[in-house]
Nucleic acid binder design. Structure first.
Lengths: 167, 167
DNA sequence: ATTAATTTTCAATATTTTTTGAAAGTTTGA
DNA sequence: TCAAACTTTCAAAAAATATTGAAAATTAAT
């Protein structure tokens, strides 16, 4: 496998993985491209490389910036904007965990809490609803608390912790 | 919030969360319905409750069974098939982790390994590709190993471990 | 072996999501 | 202030994904 093949393989694999996890292909691929690029890239560069439109590029770059994993960069004397990805793998993981928790997990935890707190009327179905949503609530809450600890830890905490668990 | 409201809220929230994480709405909602149902449900019951077609119900039940989180059950003297969900929250988490690892994460780890192993030609871009994909490979591999430990642990391991981390 | 009950399949349809591209907006420099 | 360089927005189009429903297949009882 040469450089070009490897690059394409990485970008398309990252795009496919994103899709599987609810992240659109263009967004995942732009991220992949910036992740392996030693230089900041302009919108033109990205459009060219991934064969996508200007509008698509612009919107997905904005989303990546909203997620806190891509940044704008200016070159002196140049009008054009350039983009770079967060390069540290731990920081990337933390940022993604943080955002998914905030946007997706916490709202669900809130619903689970509310649903599991309805008044018990002693019917089997109500009992089951309460019991099962409470169990989900507890698991989700514990897992989310852990994620948040993770997000606020020192740089190398993730790997150290995972390794400790794995023994 | 009464029982009906709570039930609907739970089912639609679970469906929406699924969608966000790449699982289709019907599949997530069928799972939610079975999760809180104290009795096994027939295909008719599910179609009726969620207002979805027979074909849709059949296909998504099959997928849930492929994921190992829903099972067929027969009532004596009845021709019809009934379905029940895995009820244990830990087992649910383990099963989902196990399947997502097998189907989605491991193939990506393989690609990362291959891509990060291309020959270094000492150009900046090749060096960056190798460095960054290697970093992802290491993180993904560690996390996946942890997931697999998890999957094969005793029943209550997840919560105990998470709590230990959280301190 | 036939029929009735039930489930599965899959081409057609509907829905949702993503992408495009051109117009509108913004910024910078002359 | 004007205009060139560049970016953003958003309605329309395209693509991807999910859903339907009826025909085919399966199963079980008579």
């Amino acid at each position: 496998m040469n450089y070009e093949e490897a690059k394409e393989k990485f970008i398309s694999t990252w795009g496919a993985l994103g899709t599987l996890w609810g992240i659109n292909k263009a967004m995942a691929q732009i991220h992949a491209l910036l992740w392996i690029s030693p230089e900041p890239l302009s919108m033109e560069d990205i459009m060219e490389e991934l064969q996508i439109s200007r509008g698509n590029t612009s919107m997905n770059l904005r989303q990546l910036m909203d997620w806190g994993i891509v940044f704008k960069e200016n070159k002196m004397g140049e009008r054009k904007e350039y983009f770079v990805s967060e390069k540290d793998v731990q920081e990337l993981a933390r940022q993604i965990a943080k955002e998914r928790s905030r946007r997706e997990i916490r709202p669900v935890i809130k619903v689970l809490k509310d649903v599991s707190s309805i008044e018990d009327d002693n019917t089997a179905k109500t009992k089951e609803l309460i019991k099962q949503t409470k169990a989900l609530h507890e698991l989700a809450d514990t897992a989310d608390t852990m994620m948040n600890k993770m997000v606020n830890q020192e740089h190398n905490w993730i790997t150290k912790t995972l390794l400790k668990i794995v023994k």
